[in-house]
Design a protein around this nucleic acid. Structure first.
Lengths: 235, 235
DNA sequence: TAATTACAATGGTACCACCATTTATAAAAA
DNA sequence: TTTTTATAAATGGTGGTACCATTGTAATTA
């Protein structure tokens, strides 16, 4: 009889998850690396194929592994955590714990902060590159019909680039998730007319100016207005 | 020979995941509901236990299911998506090589925003409850030796409560992750003296005042200073 | 040479038996 | 009677083995 047994008994599949996760996160296994076939791994790990596969399913869901079937298939270390983050965020919304309004407010505040940081740190080259993209948006007005799909792509790219310019990588996955998972579908519903594009252009021109003037306060206000307008917070 | 075969062959476990996920998200199964035992479900679904269990593992990881072993155990519908969001966020930060500085900056900006929102929306009851907690921190000064562990717990709780007060649940999992995963270990390293606690107290008293005065700007500035001081951004 | 076929590697599925954990209940001891 | 202990039942956890499905490559055939 045992005097002491673990409070929370360790399950085999959980142990495998922990071990592989640690190996991947520590960098000993890198993105793209191929793991040994299941039938070999079970010998190294001293477990059964069934248990290993349950662990694989979890790590696949976490975005750390990617599993392909077929002759050249196998288990590969992946880098899809961001996708999963987006999926989870979408899941959270569907369960009605998070409203569209909360999300829009979060985006408004966060993008505004990012714009402020960008105004403090943007180099002339970065500003010029951004301006070139804004010009691309303006070019859309040359056509009688607005290419809605293209406009959304350009808008998205502009926001992504601004995040990069702000120099804090924490914001990148967070805003990318918000953009792709939640705003993309929203924008697709609302039809975009010429006035819409013109308003957006005015915002971006103003932002470029604020970046050049190193005016974080102005940049924040412009971006707050821009995002609020697009998300319908000002409606 | 087949003329047409599916582009992406549907895997059985994926089909089970989709089916159960849809059932849960549509509300036909609600949080706390107990699913039939594995051995019964495989008959309804026409699959094997192994396949069902792989699907369960994924849904458990997603935070939609909770599985308990033992006589009164079973598979239950859970509501742990927010936890998973936090976990995923932590994972992402570990893999994206986020620096401590970036993280501190993100926290400073975000907590500041949250404080501003709280100042706009806090009820008198919420402010009083927060004040009671601040009093608990002050009580730590009655002892010759500061209970470091307790101080950290109280600080953490104060921040969490402020997030709740701000009324936007998007911030909850994000800041919770930042706090638990990344700041906790940091705080444990630095020894906390009486002056440290006194400074923190002054910040919180000031914040309480700002909340009462409905002064978002002041609240934001105080919180920015408070967080920066603790994270060593001002050093 | 080009199309077809066969093979091999690898993950996907299935059935069966048994182990481990937890709870409830009954039996035994105080 | 009350407390402790042993037993049983329910349920998830693990292991083994065999076979199926998918995919790429090499051998075969026209």
């Amino acid at each position: 009889m045992e005097l002491f047994r673990p409070i929370a008994p360790v399950k085999a599949y959980q142990e495998i998850i922990n071990q592989l996760e640690e190996t991947i996160l520590s960098g000993r296994l890198r993105t793209g690396d191929k793991l040994p076939p299941e039938r070999e791994l079970i010998e190294s790990l001293g477990t059964s194929r069934r248990t290993l596969r349950e662990a694989f399913r979890v790590l696949e869901q976490k975005g750390l592994l990617e599993i392909k079937i077929g002759s050249k298939g196998g288990t590969f270390v992946a880098d899809r955590i961001q996708e999963r983050l987006g999926e989870t965020l979408g899941l959270l919304m569907r369960t009605e714990n998070v409203t569209q309004l909360e999300l829009a407010e979060f985006r408004s505040n966060t993008e505004s902060t990012v714009a402020g940081l960008a105004a403090e740190r943007a180099t002339m080259e970065e500003i010029s590159a951004l301006e070139a993209e804004v010009d691309s948006v303006e070019a859309l007005l040359d056509h009688a019909l607005i290419d809605q799909q293209r406009f959304i792509e350009l808008e998205m790219a502009l926001h992504q680039n601004l995040v990069t310019i702000c120099g804090n990588s924490v914001y990148i996955p967070i805003l990318k998730t918000i953009h792709e998972v939640l705003l993309y579908p929203m924008w697709e519903k609302d039809p975009i007319d010429r006035d819409y594009v013109k308003t957006a252009l005015k915002d971006w021109r103003g932002l470029l100016d604020a970046l050049r003037r190193r005016a974080p306060g102005d940049a924040k206000e412009i971006m707050r207005h821009h995002v609020s307008h697009f998300d319908g917070l000002d409606a």
